[in-house]
Design a protein around this nucleic acid. Structure first.
Lengths: 373, 373
DNA sequence: TCCAAAACTTGTCGCGCGTAAAGATTTATT
DNA sequence: AATAAATCTTTACGCGCGACAAGTTTTGGA
């Protein structure tokens, strides 16, 4: 055992290599171990070695690793995050920005990414732009001041301060999810064309052709999905019927859809007996309004209206009636966004990862047939 | 103007006090300002003065403040978060732990706290324990390694590693929300006794006395609410009727309630025509199951079953039928938790804040009468 | 047994900033 | 105009750790 003698408590009291009583040792642990210096004295190794371990456990000998791990378990020591990241070439922080922290779609996506990040040794820091471009900008600046290793962003789209985002993108790798910022930046999301063709096809075959109930123009999906609907309809040589909705970037989808539907149903109803909504939350509003007006939603003979959504929110299957929708694969979106980011960071990927040349990934969606349409 | 001459770009090229062309200045900005040293040279002030400004803008003269603020706006400079927090007595980070990141109740609460924290100059770091005690523990250790100034935690309760939490509580101020960790730690939450008395009273007056449909035992609310229901019933000299549900700590409330309800309705139905659920998400599951079985939910004469919830989730009003429930005031919970924390941190409070001696705050809930009961 | 490679050691520097002390300058007060 | 108070500047240190260099010990293979 090679222990320097200048730290009083070490050799006999604290080293896990000694066989002192656990009680006594734990006392010492609680009182003293604050820094990696303390900790390295505790384990009886030099600080650089311990530092190496924390940066890459495999960079030290197995025996050494086991000694350190035992000591970590015993003392609960963890390197100070600020000190670690102050002096690193690249921090181990990932920045995530979502536009709405109460929307289950984004929280589910976030959760997935957090998990992957943690496994890869990164800490995910999540900020919400809360639908406001200025908050999105603030979040970006926060991440810049944190020198994040990379960032995954679900942008506000048209409202986003594109220059700022692109400028940040120059200094750190950024991946966009959910809705693209532009036509060239790395992106992972759902193929709206495919998903809307899927649902339009189904609705058309099984009943009335759908009209389209849009979402507020909060991001580019609002436009893309409307276009995708129109294309799918034209492909079937049907005339698209788009319901005009309020064009303010309001994230309270349910409420605006509810209010609009009440108006519509009181003034002659929808142009067709089938309504395809831009997303599930819009559909929730439509269904609730129909219920309250007394219009029966569903695909039975006794029903007045079919309603379909898009996204497959966690609650969609528990609606009355359960919502027919298209499932966005947020697990895959999260996984691929993380994979794309790690690829740009030069991280080792477990599975073989085929990177599309243009760094843009569009995932297919899956139709969820339920009772609402 | 007192500018040291040892930094080439300063006086003529970069100082905002000079009247150089904006173009030229912006070039300089982009290229060079990385540290507070750079920035202080840019504004033509000393670094300690600039440092003082960032710690408390009011600690410098108004004129100085304006100069710095203009330069901040122009350069976008923000002090490196890691460096700032490495050397501070107390960091400006608040740690928030919630048990489920996809539950709108917690996300709404979190959002509120984030906003308040930001206004007070703190950065809220949110971690989810995802229902798992080991993740809750990890989160605590992460916060410890970040030396967070304070923490707001919605604990897993019985499952929580109480010792760890209490140990952390010794070194940093901690406030518990939603469900208490024990009977003495600072806490802000809803008064389950009051809220359940409210809804039980209402349900009893307006129809059948309710039976109680519990939530999985994920935290102490599960027990407290059941007790609160029983008390409210006994007060009315009615016999409590509690439906036995699966006793695993499963956060997929809707699914477990849905499955259980299907079973119940197929085997003779509920003991009474009114079901009071431990929370709204449970009620969602019950309502969905009733719908699919063909049992009509609502308070009309043509209805078979009344269902009430607790919490007033954002979607509750859009259920079919809209859910009668009790609204937890998460705005107030968030505000008071933050206020309590800031009080312990010795922060100045805007409004007068009456601190209860035992640091425990129970808020009354408000009944939301809708169509489901 | 010997030797080179691997793994460790000691020592030092600096990341970007907070903080404190001591001196210089500006501002407000009389 | 003179003086005190407020505000600034200069200088210096250290937070906890990553990174690197140079020296020492351990390890494993022939």
């Amino acid at each position: 055992m090679r222990l320097s003698q200048d730290i009083f408590f070490k050799s006999t009291t604290m080293s896990p290599r000694t066989s002192e009583s656990v009680v006594k040792r734990e006392c010492a642990v609680k009182k003293t171990i604050k820094t990696m210096e303390d900790f390295s004295a505790f384990v009886g190794l030099s600080r650089p070695t311990v530092s190496k371990y924390f940066n890459d456990p495999n960079s030290v000998r197995k025996k050494t690793r086991e000694i350190i791990e035992a000591a970590v378990k015993q003392s609960g020591f963890r390197p100070n995050i600020f000190a670690v990241n102050l002096n690193r070439r690249r921090t181990n922080i990932l920045g995530i920005i979502i536009p709405n922290s109460t929307d289950p779609f984004y929280t589910a996506l976030t959760r997935r990414i957090e998990g992957i990040a943690e496994q890869a040794g990164y800490l995910a820091f999540v900020l919400s732009s809360d639908g406001k471009p200025e908050l999105e900008e603030r979040a970006i600046e926060t991440f810049k001041s944190m020198n994040v290793a990379g960032s995954i962003i679900a942008p506000l789209g048209v409202q986003s301060h594109q220059e700022k985002l692109l400028k940040l993108g120059e200094s750190i790798p950024m991946i966009y999810v959910d809705s693209p910022l532009d036509t060239v930046s790395p992106f992972v999301g759902t193929n709206n064309r495919q998903s809307f063709q899927l649902i339009v096809d189904y609705l058309t075959r099984s009943g009335d052709a759908p009209c389209y109930f849009g979402m507020p123009p909060v991001n580019s999906n609002a436009f893309e999905r409307r276009e995708a609907y129109s294309e799918a309809m034209e492909r079937l040589r049907l005339e698209p019927r788009i319901i005009e909705v309020e064009q303010t970037a309001n994230w309270d989808f349910e409420k605006s859809a509810f209010d609009a539907t009440i108006q519509i149903l009181r003034n002659g109803g929808f142009p067709t007996k089938t309504v395809l909504c831009a997303n599930d939350r819009v559909a929730f509003g439509v269904i609730a309004a129909a219920f309250q007006i007394g219009v029966k939603v569903g695909r039975g003979d006794d029903c007045d209206l079919r309603v379909a959504g898009h996204d497959d929110q966690p609650l969609s299957r528990y609606m009355c009636p359960p919502l027919t929708t298209v499932a966005q694969n947020y697990n895959e979106i999260g996984r691929l966004a993380a994979a794309l980011l790690f690829h740009k960071l030069g991280e080792h990927q477990d599975a073989k990862f085929e990177l599309p040349a243009n760094e843009r990934i569009l995932l297919n969606a899956e139709i969820m047939l339920r009772m609402s349409a």
